[in-house]
């Protein structure tokens, strides 16, 4: 097996714009899938709408691509009805924490064994560059022509608060780190959240004087700091920085296992 066995090569190239780094997330996933020898027969990938939501249709798995924001709701039905199946959900930031925010917090609360991989590019790319709940204050979007005035969501804090038993953040510049935490997220038992900082030169960069894809990735390099480094930094120094690392790694009973333990004995036939 090689990572190429996990894609439908005939369907390529991807639809994504030149300079888009969602492909880096996909690439890392394929390499991790190969390392873990993921059983594509017994794995279901659920995804929905937006750039991040469409990419999984190119992967050679059982792929369920649903309505905007609802991937985790569908995935809950997939996992609860077939607990033996591995379920992975790919979402964008709008998908996961705007329209799908309610499903996200409840999936985390239930600690259902699903891995949510969330690409955070600060923008609605597919629809033409509107602001996301993750767009930082001051940055421009088609619906924030004078700059974003709302505060941004911290996806990992949200996941933590909601009860996700594995929470990590990485980015497309630190690919070795991304590889490591994606592997940890995919092997974690329970609801795991992996937020990946990605870049959108077409819709985000272009409106914010960073249309050069390389410059956007360099921005990610410059604004991210590791957990270890962050520990030594003051609150002032951490302003406008994004911390990458593993924030939660804990164990809690998993939903389908509790279901079987508490209700399995009621089965009559």
């Amino acid at each position: 097996m090689s990572y190429l066995d996990y894609i439908k090569e005939k369907q390529f190239p991807l639809f994504t714009c030149a300079g888009c780094t969602h492909g880096t997330v996909t690439n890392t996933f394929l390499r991790v899938a190969d390392e873990l020898k993921l059983d594509k027969e017994n794995t279901v990938i659920v995804c929905a709408i937006g750039c991040a939501g469409r990419i999984p249709t190119f992967l050679d798995f059982n792929v369920l691509r649903v309505t905007h924001g609802r991937a985790l709701a569908f995935a809950t039905g997939v996992k609860l009805s077939r607990p033996d199946v591995k379920v992975i959900v790919f979402m964008g930031d709008g998908d996961a924490v705007a329209i799908g925010g309610n499903h996200f917090i409840h999936a985390a609360r239930r600690n259902i064994d699903i891995t949510a991989i969330i690409s955070h590019n600060e923008i609605y790319g597919m629809t033409g560059g509107q602001y996301a709940p993750t767009t930082l204050q001051g940055f421009k979007a088609t619906t924030a022509p004078y700059g974003m005035i709302e505060p941004a969501f911290d996806v990992c804090e949200l996941a933590k608060g909601a009860g996700s038993t594995y929470v990590a953040r990485s980015d497309v510049y630190h690919i070795n780190h991304l590889h490591k935490v994606m592997k940890n997220a995919l092997t974690h038992k329970g609801f795991s959240t992996l937020e990946v900082i990605t870049s959108c030169p077409t819709q985000f960069g272009r409106r914010n004087k960073m249309a050069d894809p390389i410059k956007l990735v360099e921005r990610i390099r410059d604004i991210t700091v590791t957990q270890t480094a962050a520990e030594k930094m003051s609150v002032e120094e951490l302003k406008d920085k994004i911390v990458i690392g593993e924030f939660v790694k804990t164990e809690r009973p998993e939903l389908t296992e509790i279901y079987e333990e508490k209700l399995g004995k009621l089965r009559k036939n």
Partner: peptide, 8 residues
């Protein structure tokens, strides 16, 4: 959504 997921 969940019932459709299970039906799939």
């Amino acid at each position: 959504g969940a019932i459709i997921g299970a039906s799939v």
